[in-house]
């Protein structure tokens, strides 16, 4: 899923400082699963913002709503009747949400309440980790299902570098050295030879480096 973190209340408050009537809009997609922009978090943010503004003596009306997916025009269209009732809309979806909203409702202002961080999953309750860099050319089968592009701090295709120590990356003791894991797995399974070659340089055109990407599936287009 797409993982995100809520922005600081200070930052969100500064975004909405001029408004007295806003909507906080959640999304039932990824941000609900990673507990940052679903029903619950929308209510918490709205309450926190109301408290902050009451404290300042500048009360604010905040309505809340959560739609199925903010990255889908079909659901975005459901806001047609209500979106104009507010001075601004604070979106708790990933970075995709406020953009679909902005494109659909040109006259409204949309503010992101979260920082979209990575593609990953929960390794345990409350802890999410990055797994994919979305480079557009998957090669994890060569590394027994572990991705060095996303998970090596230097995206090395020939690791581990000299900073690998006791299974951890040089950048922090909390970060595993994915190359240590790759090598250990290959050694265990007696397939070290898989790694003993020089890989061709990666074609980054399929990644963000090639420009904004687009995926077309002819059989689905209308």
């Amino acid at each position: 899923m797409i993982v995100a973190d809520r922005k600081s209340l200070e930052e969100i408050l500064s975004m909405i400082k001029d408004y007295k009537n806003i909507m906080v809009l959640g999304c039932k997609g990824c941000v609900t699963v990673c507990n940052v922009g679903g029903e619950k978090e929308v209510s918490i943010l709205a309450s926190a913002l109301r408290i902050a503004r009451q404290k300042e003596g500048r009360e604010i009306n905040i309505d809340t709503k959560v739609i199925e997916r903010q990255c889908d025009n079909e659901y975005v269209a459901q806001l047609k009747e209500t979106v104009g009732n507010y001075e601004a809309v604070v979106s708790m979806a990933c970075g995709v949400g406020p953009q679909f909203l902005s494109e659909a409702y040109r006259e409204q202002k949309f503010y992101p309440a979260v920082n979209t961080t990575f593609f990953g999953g929960a390794v345990t309750h409350g802890i999410w980790e990055e797994r994919c860099a979305g480079c557009g050319t998957c090669i994890i089968h060569d590394f027994d299902g572990l991705c060095p592009v996303a998970r090596c701090a230097k995206s090395l295709l020939h690791g581990p570098c000299g900073g690998s120590s006791k299974g951890k990356c040089e950048i922090s003791k909390e970060t595993i050295c994915i190359w240590d894991s790759i090598v250990s797995k290959k050694m265990e399974q007696g397939r070290l030879n898989d790694l003993l070659k020089v890989r061709a340089v990666k074609d980054w055109r399929t990644a963000r480096d090639g420009g904004p990407r687009r995926s077309i599936r002819e059989e689905l287009t209308q």
Binding site: S8, L9, E10, L13, I44, A48, I51, A52, K55
Partner: peptide, 8 residues
């Protein structure tokens, strides 16, 4: 933490 953030 939330209260701290908003100065309460």
């Amino acid at each position: 933490k939330i209260l701290q953030e908003i100065g309460i």
